[in-house]
Design a protein around this nucleic acid. Structure first.
Length: 565
RNA sequence: CGGGGCGUGGCGCAGCCUGGUAGCGCGCCUGCUUUGGGAGCAGGAGGCCGCCGGUUCGAAUCCGGCCGCCCCGACCA
């Protein structure tokens, strides 16, 4: 591709609205342009990178038996009503009516379509298992786009779906994807950590997210330094140490004026926050009051609480009136004497005797609070939010926290969708079952951005060879005043191109400085310079973009290497 | 949705406070010179100052409303 013809432009200045390196560089180097908030065009260079990422994914999914297909972007709303998600999903799903006044949606994902196809096509266990996938545009009306290509509203995603006869089959398909994802991200040059994650609106029995550690990441990861444990903080377990053997003491009320926070309470009584109990109050989407009790030195993890309480429609903080209506006092609250509320006690708090907790009377707390003696929890489960330095739930070493960007995810869906859509198959013994599904996603643009995050320097992008839009960038210097340069560069370009290998060729009438700067900004793995100087030295100067190593090599040798792919 | 910031030529910005009819750098076009690290000289093109309304003799500038974009938070396969 001749740069003189390429539809692109480089920018000398950073765009004002770009914060992240990937955003800055992809715009400056002419790979992408923004059209609206969270909506981007891929220019020819960016599109080629996306295609190369796509090809890596395609190869690895084909290798585990995946079959590529394509499913529609626009779905009838009825399909989503059948799965129950039409009402479950909020305004992030775009909805519209077609000319016949029929409700339609822009698909955020394709579980429904796969389940619908399975319903039509699969009759027998002999047809299973199946892995299908496609690369398709998604539109999700995110509340806030951010970080350039990191969180956008319209994007191309690879989504694959496994359909198996039973849970054991799902486990195999899930494991196949897990391993394929490892290989994919390895080939893309992304260092990922697979973390256990929340299943969210998908339901299902298990999920992992493949995360790239990055300070701009939107998720917080809990990582064991020895690699024994990695989880999204949303679901990260908090270890419960063995009982101390401390005997429960008699509860006693103590006046604690003006201590509505754990910090003021601990200071007033001169006890560590870890010897207090914190009550937090929420209301579920269907109007139930949930009282969560964690140790005072922890925060409530709302995801874990919401899952434990099976909160329909999520949780919102309760109002003071709602708390008082259940017999509790904001700022001095505990489940002692409470009524009409689901009490969820954190496992660590349950294992911590003699805490200071609210007396449900303004200005008073209770010393030596102990469950179930002083109140009866409906549930005793882990609902505390993991902190840096907490012991790893596997090995006990202190965990660290890091921010991460989710570059891929895998979900065990189970039979929710096939059940809802009424897809069944006949087993060997003639019994009828719902196929078991899994779903697996990778966002292409986000991966492109993460690759740039991981592979750039102060001069520009440094593409890994696996995804570079072109393997090499040929720069002709002084071609318009030295016919030998023009002839050598044109000849090299023509013969390499004729061999079937496309490279970038800077044939523009620009100064050497501009050409070198652009070549480094654009980031092809190899920069080949042909100039009077290089010819005098015996050929073309070859620069490795990543290492900066340079050498002058005979034209024929460079040509052979490029043509050889 | 809450908080903050920003909207002036393709890009980056100044001008706004204190109203008087728009400027700088880069880029772009033409010519000459230059040619291994974002060249020089000369000439030139290009702006509904986000939109609507108001105040005023006069608005990029002051006032009101709206729209858009970015960041933090809320939210989130």
């Amino acid at each position: 591709m001749r740069l003189s013809r390429l539809f692109f432009t480089t920018l000398r200045d950073d765009p004002a609205d770009a914060d992240m390196a990937s955003h800055r560089l992809l715009v400056r180097a002419g790979y992408v342009r923004q059209l609206g908030s969270g909506i981007y065009s891929l220019l020819p260079l960016g599109f080629r990178v996306q295609q190369r990422i796509e090809q890596v994914i395609r190869e690895e999914l084909d290798a585990i038996g995946g079959q590529e297909m394509e499913m529609p972007v626009v779905h009838p709303a009825d399909l989503w009503r059948q799965s129950g998600r039409y009402d479950k999903i909020g305004p992030e799903m775009a909805r519209f009516k077609d000319r016949g006044e029929r409700d339609m949606v822009l698909a955020m994902t394709h579980e429904e379509v796969v389940a619908d196809l399975v319903r039509d096509i699969v009759n027998s266990y002999r047809q299973l298992p199946i892995i299908v996938y496609h690369f398709q545009t998604k539109f999700r009306d995110e509340p806030r786009a951010r970080g350039g290509l990191i969180r956008v509203r319209e994007f191309v995603m690879k989504d694959s779906y496994s359909v198996d006869a039973d849970e054991a089959g799902l486990d195999r398909s899930y494991q196949l994807h897990y391993e394929a994802y490892r290989r994919i991200f390895e080939r893309l040059g992304l260092a990922t950590v697979a973390v256990g994650s929340d299943v969210g609106i998908m339901g299902g029995s298990g999920a992992h997210e493949f995360m790239v550690v990055n300070p701009h990441g939107e998720d917080t990861l809990v990582l064991c330094p020895s690699g024994d444990y990695a989880a999204n903080q949303q679901v990260a377990r908090v270890a419960v140490p063995p009982p101390t053997g401390e005997e429960p003491l008699a509860a006693e009320e103590v006046a604690t004026p003006g201590t509505e926070t754990i910090a003021t309470l601990a200071a007033f009584l001169d006890v560590p926050a870890s010897r207090t109990a914190k009550a937090a109050f929420f209301v579920t989407g269907d109007g139930r009051l949930v009282t969560a009790v964690v140790r005072g030195d922890f925060e409530v993890n709302e995801t874990k609480l919401s899952n434990a309480a099976k909160a329909v429609g999520g949780l919102r903080p309760a109002t003071a009136e709602e708390i008082r209506a259940a017999g509790m006092e904001p700022g001095y609250g505990s489940p002692v004497g409470a009524h009409d509320t689901l009490v969820v006690l954190d496992a660590l708090a349950a294992a911590s005797p003699n805490l200071v907790g609210g007396a449900n009377r303004p200005g008073f707390h209770l010393r030596n609070l102990n469950a179930p003696r002083d109140f009866s929890p409906d549930l005793t489960v882990d609902i505390a939010n993991a902190r840096a330095g907490d012991p790893c739930p596997e090995c006990g070493a202190p965990v660290t926290l890091a921010q991460g960007i989710e570059v891929g995810n895998i979900f065990k869906l189970g039979t929710d969708f096939t059940r809802a859509l009424g897809a069944t198959y006949l087993a060997e013994d003639g019994s009828r079952h719902h196929p078991v599904m899994g779903s697996y996603g990778i966002g292409l643009g986000r991966n492109m951005a993460c690759i740039v995050e991981a592979h750039h320097d102060e001069k520009g992008i440094v593409w890994p060879a696996s995804v570079a839009p072109y393997p090499a960038h040929l720069v002709a210097i002084g071609a318009n005043r030295d016919p030998a340069v023009a002839e050598a560069a044109e000849g090299l370009y023509k013969r390499v191109t004729d061999s079937g290998v496309e490279i970038l060729y800077d044939d523009r009438d620009e100064s050497p400085g501009v050409k070198f700067t652009d070549a480094e900004l654009l980031g092809m793995p190899m920069i080949v310079t042909v100039s009077p100087r290089s010819l005098a030295a015996g050929g073309a100067e070859v620069t490795d973009r990543a290492s900066g190593d340079r050498s002058v090599r005979p034209l024929a040798e460079v040509e052979a290497e490029l043509a050889g792919g």
